[in-house]
Computed example of a mutant assay.
Amino acid sequence: MMLSRARLTAWWHGRRFQDDRGDTSMQMAIVFPFVLLLTVAVIQASMWYYARQIALTAAREGLSTARSYQAGPAEGATRARDVLNRTAGDSLMSAGVSTTGSGAQRIRIEVSGTAQSMLPGVPGLHITQSASGTVERWTKPGTP
């Protein structure tokens, strides 16, 4: 008894598809943890970047205030803390403001804290941002 080519092809294709059952589920079981890990990593990086931007904004605002005429590092630190209180929320935890490195000619405001972590029990990344600039002052024409 001889099989026709059409029946043999149909039998072969049916057999091949029958053996592939479950392959998609197995592929998803292998690939899905990596996709999930990549998603968490992207979200964590975004949270770290956002916390850095909050710290930098607070430092710049503090510097702008501290550089003003007849202001000083204390006013700048107060302004930076105000900005942090308004904007940080849970994004920048344990935030602190420092004016270390400030002098009569130069002001430096440093804001540091910890970015929130996506994974419970895992500490967030430490962030430090600073801004510095010269103090505004009145001078007589012709004097440096």
Rank of each mutant, 00 (worst) to 15 (best):
G22L: 08
M26T: 11
G96C: 04
L8T: 15
M1F: 12
S68E: 15
P73N: 10
Y50W: 07
G72V: 04
S25G: 15
V31C: 10
T99F: 07
H13S: 12
T65E: 12
L36A: 12
Q70A: 12
V135K: 02
A77S: 09
S46G: 14
S91M: 11
T24D: 02
Q27K: 08
A74D: 12
V83W: 05
D82E: 13
I43P: 07
V42W: 05
D19R: 13
V35E: 06
E110M: 10
V135L: 09
A45V: 13
E110R: 09
L84W: 04
I107G: 01
G96I: 08
L38G: 15
S64A: 13
H13R: 12
S25W: 09
R79I: 05
S112G: 05
G62F: 01
R7D: 11
P33Y: 10
R79C: 00
P73H: 05
Q44S: 09
T100R: 00
N85E: 13
F34Q: 06
W48L: 11
G133V: 06
V83Y: 07
T39Y: 01
G89V: 09
A41F: 09
S98W: 02
E75G: 14
S4K: 04
L119N: 07
S4R: 07
A59S: 08
F34K: 05
Q70W: 09
V83G: 03
I54G: 01
V35H: 07
Q129H: 00
W48H: 11
G62T: 04
P123L: 02
P120T: 11
W12S: 14
A88P: 06
I127L: 08
T39N: 02
G62V: 00
G14M: 08
S102W: 00
R86N: 11
H13T: 12
I107C: 06
A71M: 10
I107H: 04
F34C: 07
G124K: 05
V97M: 03
S130M: 08
A58C: 04
I127K: 02
W12R: 13
M26D: 02
G103L: 06
S102C: 00
D90E: 10
F34R: 00
G101K: 06
M28Q: 06
I43G: 03
A58V: 03
V135S: 01
P123H: 07
V122G: 06
R79V: 02
D90W: 00
V111N: 00
S94L: 10
A59L: 03
S4G: 10
P120L: 11
T57W: 01
M2D: 13
L8K: 11
N85W: 06
A29V: 06
F34N: 04
D20E: 15
L125S: 01
R81K: 15
W12L: 15
V40M: 14
V111W: 00
S94F: 12
A104M: 09
S117P: 08
M47F: 12
R52W: 04
Q105S: 15
Q44E: 10
R81W: 13
W48V: 15
G76D: 04
R108W: 02
A88D: 01
W12K: 12
V40C: 11
G89W: 07
L119V: 15
G124M: 08
S130L: 05
A104C: 08
A131W: 06
N85P: 07
S64D: 10
Q129G: 06
R106I: 15
A104V: 13
P73Q: 11
Q18R: 12
Q18T: 13
I107T: 03
Y50M: 03
S4P: 04
A29N: 03
D23G: 12
